[in-house]
Amino acid sequence: MSFFNSIGRSMTRSQRPKRSPTPTSATFSPSEMPPPQPPSPTITTPKPLYLSSPFVEAALVKGNFKTIVMLPKYVDIMEWVAVNIFDFYTNLNEFYGVIAECCNQQSCPKMSAGPALNYTWINQDRKSVHLAAPTYIDYVMTWVQNLLDDDNTFPTKAGHEFPPSFPSTVKHVYRQLLRVFAHIYHAHYHQILHLRSEPHFNSLFAHFLAFGREYELLEVKDVKGSSSAPVGVGQLWEAWRQMGILEG
């Protein structure tokens, strides 16, 4: 179901620099042939716990999450999105509150979401700055809470309509909440396991992903990241797709 008008972006593709031809045996005379190089050691990265069985299968809801994100009859789509945003924020905030003491300036000096991915915050000067994860998450949660409390953004009184900017606002909210999920999975999933809360947290995140894709609140590129800086939970997205939990 479409929730947003597509936003066109003009993008220019930079021309790739020309590469030097790869040397071959024909390039060198026998006396100039370089000595054989030993094979580079293979570095294997251990699989994250959240991708390992039985944790990747742990969930409270069985089957495809699409069935629980469909718009109910006679419910306004704006109201449906607003209510679900509130629930996702509330539940995620509660999970983070439980493990917050483990997320501090020393353990999480950056807002990481993968071995090569650190999120940056846009400050008041419109500059990207690195923040410690607890500071970044505090900024996100405070900002979302202020939006939810603002009746001009999330109207709760009869006769008050949603502003025209509501779709773009909730899309930005969704992107920031995704980053909080991604950091918890990357840096604190072992604490979730210690609390035996992995079925609850997995179900919350799968619901969040399914809802975001159903109403175009979430871009796949935000879930997966880039080839040079992949988001850790991008693999979890793929695993749940293969298991039939999420749609393609």
Rank of each mutant, 00 (worst) to 15 (best):
Q242Y: 07
H188R: 08
M70K: 11
Y189N: 06
I99W: 00
K110M: 01
I85Q: 11
G8A: 08
E238M: 12
H207L: 05
W143Q: 01
I122T: 11
G97R: 06
L209P: 01
V61D: 13
F65T: 10
P39G: 02
A133E: 04
T153F: 11
V75P: 08
I43D: 12
R179H: 13
V98S: 08
M141I: 12
G248R: 10
D87V: 11
D149A: 05
K221P: 07
Y119Q: 04
P54N: 10
N104Y: 02
K110Y: 09
L117W: 14
F95N: 02
Y119S: 01
A158P: 03
S40H: 15
F95S: 04
V129A: 03
K224F: 10
F208D: 00
N93D: 15
K66V: 11
G248D: 15
H190A: 15
E32L: 05
A132V: 05
Q191K: 14
F166T: 03
S40E: 12
P35V: 07
F4D: 15
Y89E: 01
I68W: 09
S25H: 00
E79K: 15
A210K: 02
A58S: 13
W121T: 00
C108L: 04
N202H: 03
I245H: 15
Y215D: 02
E219K: 09
F205K: 04
L148T: 05
N202E: 00
K221N: 02
R241Q: 15
P199W: 07
F55V: 11
D138Q: 10
S112N: 04
S168C: 06
R179N: 09
L195H: 14
Q15R: 14
S128N: 09
D76L: 08
F55K: 14
R19K: 12
Q37H: 07
M1A: 07
I43R: 15
K66P: 05
P17D: 07
N118H: 13
W240I: 06
S53E: 13
F211G: 02
Y215W: 10
L131S: 10
F4A: 08
W80C: 10
N93T: 14
A132I: 09
V98Y: 08
Y119I: 03
E57Y: 12
V223G: 01
K47M: 09
A133V: 00
F55A: 15
F154E: 01
N118V: 12
E214Y: 08
Y139W: 03
H188N: 15
